[in-house]
Design a protein around this nucleic acid. Structure first.
Length: 507
RNA sequence: GGCUCGUUGGUCAAGCGGUUAAGACGCCUCCCUUUCACGGAGGAAUGACGGGUUCGAUUCCCGUACGGGCUACCA
């Protein structure tokens, strides 16, 4: 009996979507596509105090930009909705109470102050962060230490309460992780996590189990930061009697910053490179964070480089299209060790993708970059030619401005310093003559322009070599760009001559 | 501190008991190029440490060290 593969990405809408999140989405997506399954997006918004307006829509937009759109989500409901946990609130409660009935969970009435006091009381140098565990629970205000009826009475009176899982004493609970193999933990090491909060909302622990069950999730991928709470989830699957439908777990290695620490959405501006997929402005803190898209990355490159952080197909190939990745991806080849993010390598991926992309593919992005600099009226056919001429020199999309702006606009500044030193009257004469020649040129083509250029140089006893750089600087403003006669050919007679004259006037 | 995961060049990494320990990024040198790139050829640079197991360990096991994660009525 093989059931339909269903995977899910379950972000909390509390801020930007960072590298690690996108990679988790990607692995989910690749796995689902590869197995002809479903990829669902579930919004984990059970913490109402952390709700950030716009974050949900932002996440959806990021997935769209990356080309990793879910099969089921809040905007594309399937048969397992709702897809927002806050709208599933009631579903969780019955399971929490059922666990209490069974004796696998209990009501706890401890106030935040009391919990704080408990932590103070048990805190020692050897145990700096005490938990609500098997020893401690015997001394707290909970239904374990009173008659269940008394507890029900308190609840009836309106006393705030939470439901906590009652972790069994000294049992070994384990599972086979798809990336890590056997993982076993003694239940005595695990504390009694809150399942249902005082506001009636479930915590992640309860919600993830209930929803994965109800949504028929078969494979659960998440970051390694969840590994230590896996025993709680396992216990829940077991106590709820759903063990047979428990998904296969895969705890993915973390992506870390150059400092070796886990990337956090709280540190969106910690490094000198973006960590979010797209620009994000926190409406509450009014805090802006740059994204990869706006930094000038192609989504193909972004997704490609993320896939290779923790996975490779063993062949040495590093550039993959999404389709290729769907073909080649396998969980067996996912690493267990975390990886430090290297922005230099990320840029290399983008450069590779720009070089390999057709001008047609690049056209919209390049148009946008140029438009940002006020260049809006360029002919598509010309621009396509230009893109092919300069794309190998563009690492980020913004480089297209510097590398191709001069095709459409006279350079704002001319690097005369680089030619002044070796300038002389002879060269002025040469360019004056070149202007005269070009003015009479009918067929404005690169090869002809070059031929005439060299001929005039020879007649004047000058080496073309000492003339080419000045000519280039006249046309583009600096020492860069594609073959100089190709540039002249594209910008046309009028602009070529005007730029020569302009620079001559500066010397 | 406890629990847990991890450890091959600066970074990403291949390898799955016998190899001159791949490849890529970055760095350096040279070639190509009368610019900048692209491309090409080289170079420096690696299995944390200590014990086992074995004829033989980067590879298997155990310790130690180091690093990450978790340790909330956050996810």
């Amino acid at each position: 009996m093989s059931q339909r593969v269903r995977v899910r990405f379950a972000p909390s809408p509390t801020g930007g979507l960072h590298l690690g999140g996108v990679r988790t989405v990607l692995y989910n997506y690749l796995f689902a596509r590869q197995h002809g399954g479903d990829f669902v997006l579930r919004i984990e918004d059970t913490d109402q105090t952390r709700f950030v307006p716009g974050a949900e829509a932002y996440i959806l937009d990021c997935l769209k930009w990356c080309g990793l759109e879910p099969d089921e989500s809040v905007v594309k409901p399937g048969a397992y909705g709702p897809y927002r946990q806050s709208e599933r609130k009631e579903m969780y409660q019955q399971y929490a109470h059922r666990l209490v009935e069974q004796g696998d969970a209990y009501y706890a009435f401890d106030t935040p102050a009391e919990l704080e006091a408990m932590r103070e009381q048990y805190k020692t140098p050897e145990n700096p962060s005490p938990t609500y565990n098997q020893q401690v629970r015997r001394h707290m205000r909970n239904s374990l230490n009173m008659e269940l009826e008394a507890a029900r009475e308190l609840i009836a009176e309106g006393t705030p309460y939470v439901v906590r899982i009652k972790m069994p004493v000294d049992e070994v609970i384990g599972f086979t992780d798809m990336v890590r193999g056997e993982v076993n933990v003694n239940t005595s090491q695990v504390d009694d996590k809150v399942l249902l909060k005082a506001d009636g909302m479930p915590t992640y622990h309860l919600a993830v189990v209930v929803d994965d069950y109800l949504m028929k999730i078969t494979h659960a991928f998440r970051g390694e930061e969840w590994l230590s709470s896996a025993p709680v989830h396992l216990m829940l699957w077991k106590k709820l009697g759903w063990e047979d439908s428990m998904p296969a777990w895969a705890h993915l290695p973390l992506i870390m910053g150059p400092d070796g620490a886990k990337l956090s959405k709280r540190h969106g501006n910690k490094y000198d490179f973006p960590i979010f997929a797209m620009n994000w402005t926190d409406p509450l803190k009014n805090e802006f964070t740059e994204g990869f898209r706006e930094r000038g990355f192609l989504p193909e490159a972004f997704v490609n480089l993320l896939a290779l952080m923790g996975w490779n197909d063993g062949s040495g190939q590093e550039i993959f299209t999404l389709d290729e990745m769907v073909q080649r991806f396998s969980m067996e080849r996912v690493h267990s060790a975390g990886a430090q993010f290297d922005f230099e390598k990320a840029k290399w991926y983008n450069h590779e993708w720009i070089k390999r992309s057709t001008a047609q593919r690049l056209l919209p992005e390049v148009q946008q970059v140029l438009a940002q600099h006020g260049i809006t009226d360029c002919n598509d056919q010309v621009l396509l030619q230009v893109i092919d001429l300069v794309k190998e020199r563009c690492t980020l999309l913004h480089d297209f401005y510097e590398q191709s702006g001069f095709f459409f606009q006279a350079p704002a500044s001319i690097d005369t310093e680089s030619i002044k030193g070796k300038w002389n009257e002879q060269k002025t004469l040469f360019f004056t003559e070149l202007i005269r020649n070009y003015e009479l040129t009918q067929l404005w083509q690169a090869a002809d322009l070059e031929h005439a250029f060299k001929e005039i140089a020879a007649v004047n006893g000058l080496k073309p070599g000492e003339l080419m750089l000045p000519f280039r600087i006249m046309l583009v403003g600096g020492k860069f760009g594609p073959a100089v006669f190709d540039i002249a050919a594209i910008i046309g007679k009028e602009a070529t001559i005007a730029r020569i004259k302009h620079t001559l006037s500066l010397l």
